[in-house]
Structure formats: structure tokens, C-alpha cells
Design a protein around this nucleic acid. Structure first.
Lengths: 115, 115
DNA sequence: TTCATATATTAGAATATGTGTATCTAAATA
DNA sequence: TATTTAGATACACATATTCTAATATATGAA
């Protein structure tokens, strides 16, 4: 895992961070879906869905096979289910503040500062 | 966890999906840092770092306390470490395609289609 | 006080992103 | 062959994001 990979994954993160694309990926996580399946539960124009699918495919997150005039999309990237899970996971509302100090008030910088 | 929460988290995801902000959050995951600590290892103008910090704080991801003229930032959101971990985690290059068909080739739609 | 330091804010330009309309192609079917 | 259906693509426009430069503010030190 080098830095380039991390940069690539940040690009992927940015691509995914959109409600329609999250919804699409959520469906594809459950199984193969063709575009008209997706149209049923996304309140978006067909062309718009197609555009999102195209972007996701260019990024290598999904792919499709052809069945007659259907295009059957499926998930290709293993990071996606993990990301979707985090979006649903339960978290504490806030992490505890460092002990040294109250939040957004005065405090003492803990440990050594560099330089 | 309702839909509003998911939408909020997608917003957070979008905010985080930026190299500088990932770097900042990565540092804050290790501990409290003030702005000039961050300036040392981010190759960005001070004002730009300040802008990123401000955005992250408005979203509730981080907060700070004041130590003299330092602002000491720390992590406030528990989803962040999980996200950062995913960015570093090892994944198979590609998920297996559905058995029914070769990728981006002809195949048969698996199971029942709806409608 | 005055100065230096640490950080924030503002404004604007450049660029990227999202979406709609219209059009296009390929496959299935009458 | 002509039509319908499933889906993709092109273009235009609005909006959002990101960065730079300049300026402002607050604190501690001289």
C-alpha cells in the first residue's frame, strides 16, 4: 500500500460520496441489477442514472454484462461494502475531548510540541 | 439510524474525501495538534489549512482548545478512524463477477427481474 | 504600547461537479 | 422494414469546491 494507492482511494471516496451513487452501490451490493431496476427506486431521470453508472464504471467500482438490451450491473470493488457499512454503523455522538482541557476553551498543549 | 442520518453521513464523507483533509484527520487521529504542527508536514499555505480546519470543525468532525496563541485541534467524530482504516486496508483487486456471465460480455439476468 | 507570532477571514479566479434536454445506438419485435 | 424499448452520450448551464493573496484578529513578549 503506497501513497499513490491512498490518493486513488481518496478519489474513489469522493466519487462515492453522493446520495444517488451511494443508493446505486447499496443496491448492487445486494446483487446484479439492470438500469431499469435502478430506475424503479431511484427518483432520477434515466440519463442521470446512466451518468452515475458510467462514472462508477470508469472508476472500476462496477461493471456490467449484456443480456439482450439490458445492461446488468454488478459490484467490482471490495472497499465499497465496507464503506456502506460504516455509513450505517452506530457511533458515539462524540469522541471524548483530551483530558488536558475543556473543549473550545483554554487548556495546555499536551506533551512535547515539535520544533 | 434513519435516512436523515445517512444523508448527513454522506455529507461528511464528501467533506472528508479530500487529500489535505484526510492528512489532517490522520494526524489528529494520533493526537492533539495545533495549526503550526500541521503546517510542518502539509505542503499548504497556512490560510488554506485554516480553511480546511474550519470546514471540518463546522461539520463537527474536530474541535479545538486554546493554549495561549495556539489552537489545539483534536478529533471529535468516531467514524473518522474507521474511514481512515479502510483507506489503508488491503482488498482484493476485484470482486468476482457473478457466475452467470463474463464481464462486460453477454450473459443471462440472474433470478427474477421485478415488474 | 508596539511588535511579532499564530491563526482566521474574506474575496475572487479557476476548476470541477451535477443535472436537464435532446439526441443517439442497439436489440427486440410487429 | 418500421417501431419500440433499454440505455448511453453530448451539450449547456448552474452551482459548488478549492486555492491564492491580502487582510484581520488575538495573544504574548519587549
Amino acid at each position: 500500500m503506497n501513497m499513490r494507492d491512498v490518493a486513488d482511494r481518496i478519489d474513489i471516496l469522493r466519487l462515492i460520496a453522493h446520495p444517488a451513487r451511494i443508493a446505486i452501490l447499496g443496491e448492487l451490493t445486494k446483487g446484479v441489477k439492470c438500469v431499469s431496476d435502478l430506475e424503479e427506486f431511484l427518483e432520477l431521470r434515466q440519463s442521470n442514472i446512466s451518468q452515475h453508472l458510467s462514472a462508477l464504471r470508469l472508476a472500476g467500482l462496477i461493471d456490467y454484462f449484456v443480456d439482450g438490451r439490458l445492461r446488468c450491473y454488478f459490484l467490482r470493488n471490495a472497499m465499497v461494502p465496507d464503506l456502506l457499512e460504516i455509513l450505517k454503523k452506530d457511533y458515539p455522538l462524540e469522541l471524548p475531548a483530551p483530558e488536558c482541557c475543556p473543549v473550545t476553551k483554554k487548556g495546555k498543549y499536551p506533551g512535547e510540541r515539535r520544533k
